[in-house]
């Protein structure tokens, strides 16, 4: 897929891009993966039903 023109020495000096570092960190991903549905699905959803008005 890639053409390797850089020498091994030069390549290892290159900084790892931020996105690659994020994807290489399973615990950060775990945090994101649990937070997203907890906030958007669970908490938001439960807030909707507990704030329903009482039938007149």
């Amino acid at each position: 897929m890639s053409d390797d023109k850089a020498t091994p020495g030069r390549e290892s000096e290159e900084r790892i891009p931020a996105m690659q570092s994020i994807l290489d960190n399973p615990f950060l991903l775990l945090f994101i993966g649990v937070t997203m549905p907890t906030v958007f699905y669970l908490i938001w959803g439960i807030m909707e039903i507990v704030t329903l008005p009482v039938a007149p």
Binding site: E11, I16, P17
Partner: peptide, 13 residues
């Protein structure tokens, strides 16, 4: 991945 910095490998068409 074959490349150390795989994030920068170009994506195919």
């Amino acid at each position: 991945p074959a490349d150390r910095v795989w994030w920068k490998v170009p994506v195919g068409r």
